[in-house]
């Protein structure tokens, strides 16, 4: 292991390492801790300029209650769910198929199509913005959740295909050969042989895409307008203008908005990290 395990070092080194760990963590998360502290303060603290002293009272329920019951936040959150979940399902389903086609079969243009997906996945959003917005408007899906979902599914298929194809590539090819010798139809090979083996990849991609889409801001601004369809990332700006300069409520609001992907991450950590490293770093 590198660096040398701390257990093999002097007692002093071990003690200082143990002390340094929480200290470093607090430093690292300082901006976030500040927001968390803000979110439980009463309004009075801000008007009195008591930003960092002891809170004069503990207003966790009051502040978060306001976020949930006196703002559009629940609607935005629900919109986010209705945009994120179908996107995850759509992108993963499509890329299971493209990944299978590109990972198993050898044909002319295979690598070309694969590279088209990778390249498309890297382009700046702005080069797509005007035409995609036009397209969405012209099929009557501007300011709808479906309009956002369709674009996200298409765009995420690029990244997902990269991931799925490499994953399928690494599967033992003998399995498929054996099934072919048995005379199993190609689509049944996909469904009964390959798909069950892809479970870890599907899990990894699902968490990852969930986070990406939940956190998307740019397309939410480009393709939606009001609380009818806007996800929480875009909604939070209207939330903040509703509670302008009320830092305790804005803090509580942004913590609520950030929470679902965080929960997803802590629940599915192993899969998440496997996805992030693109499976390239085992």
């Amino acid at each position: 292991m590198f660096p040398t395990p701390i257990q093999k070092q002097s007692m002093a080194a071990q003690v200082s390492y143990q002390a340094l760990l929480p200290l470093a963590l607090i430093m690292w998360l300082l901006p976030l801790i500040a927001v968390a502290l803000f979110s439980i303060r009463p309004l009075a603290d801000f008007t009195n300029g008591n930003y960092w002293g002891m809170p004069s009272s503990f207003e966790f329920f009051e502040n978060y209650g306001k976020v949930f019951f006196e703002s559009d936040m629940p609607r935005y959150l629900w919109n986010s769910v209705l945009i994120t979940v179908p996107t995850v399902i759509g992108a993963v389903a499509l890329s299971c198929m493209t990944g299978f086609a590109l990972g198993i079969y050898r044909f002319r243009g295979n690598l070309l199509i694969f590279f088209m997906f990778i390249a498309g996945n890297f382009v700046p959003f702005q080069i797509l913005m005007v035409p995609v917005r036009d397209l969405t408007v012209s099929i009557g899906l501007y300011d709808t959740k479906l309009g956002l979902v369709l674009f996200h599914v298409a765009f995420q298929t690029g990244f997902c295909t990269l991931f799925m194809r490499n994953f399928i590539r690494a599967l033992p090819h003998e399995l498929i050969e054996a099934a072919r010798v048995e005379g199993v139809a190609e689509w049944r090979i996909f469904w009964f042989v390959v798909l069950p083996l892809m479970r870890p990849a599907i899990a990894a991609l699902s968490v990852l895409i969930f986070t990406f889409i939940w956190n998307d801001y740019f397309w939410a601004v480009v393709l939606t307008q009001g609380p009818g369809a806007q996800p929480v990332t875009a909604g939070i700006t209207s939330f903040n203008s509703q509670f302008v300069a009320q830092y305790h409520l804005m803090s509580a609001g942004s913590i609520v908005a950030a929470l679902p992907p965080v929960a997803m991450f802590f629940l599915m950590q192993r899969h998440f990290i496997a996805g992030l490293t693109l499976g390239a770093v085992k």
């Binding site: 498309g120 382009v123 080069i127 674009f151 298409a154 690029g158």
Partner: peptide, 25 residues
């Protein structure tokens, strides 16, 4: 035919929303 059919929906979608818009821009 199998890889073709499996690729079709994904590729069409990707062309429509990503590749063609680049040219349009």
């Amino acid at each position: 035919t199998t890889p073709l059919l499996f690729l079709l929906p994904g590729v069409l979608f990707f062309l429509l929303y990503v590749i063609i818009p680049i040219g349009q821009s």
